[in-house]
Amino acid sequence: MIWDWDWTREILPELLTQGLLVTVQATLGGAVLAFVLGLFVALLRRSRNPFVSRPVGAVMEFIRSTPLLVQLFVVYYVLPDFGVKMTALMTGIIGLGLHYASYTSEVYRAGIDGVPKGQWEAAIALNLPRHWIWISVVLPQAVRRSLPALGNYLIAIFKESPQLSIITVVDVVGLARELGSERFRYLEPMTVAGLFFLLVAIPASIFVRRLERRLGN
């Protein structure tokens, strides 16, 4: 038998508790950061002041066009030189969050552009202050429109989180690599890790598709 069931049973609990916990932390941390930062970036990019909107747009374009892995290296190896000390997991969350903020800001932008013009005109006709138009009229509608796309990016962040294992975070894949290197046998741990990603990602994407249909866009 090529497949070693005994060993699979031995490593499964460890992968699904310790590894899963770190993967979930990285995913949720990265997603929260990306969703919040993305919203601010989307607002800054709409700024009337070109000295604000242009540089923010350029930086985001740069982040989106370069690999997450290299960005992780920058945060992990270069920032400590400037006196910023963090755990590897924290570094990874910041890297993921920054990288995906450049994607989510586009999602919010599309959501904001999709708010009908009449809503703006009505809010102005009601003499609402500018910040109030944003907070209580435009953003609630824009964010609602953006939800399915944000859900897709949550899944994307979940699938990209194994890259953190390269900067020594011990998530599901990091743990699988560690276990594999002990016996120099990667078949079982890697297959289990891959199946685990499938088992989460496929139902999640079905859920997002359903959400998309329910919100009607």
């Binding site: 090529i2 497949w3 699938k159 990209e160 989180s161 194994p162 890259q163 294992s165 894949v173 699988a176 690599r177 594999g180 046998r185 990667y186 078949l187 890697m190 297959t191 890790a193 891959g194 990603f197 499938l198 990602a201 496929i202 994407s205």
Partner: peptide
């Protein structure tokens, strides 16, 4: 489509390079 979009590239890469030879 679902299979390859459901897992991350890194896992697929490891699997093809390290795990498949054993199988």
């Amino acid at each position: 489509m679902e299979f390859f979009r459901g897992t991350s590239v890194l896992v697929q890469l490891f699997w093809l390079y390290y795990a498949m030879p054993i199988l």
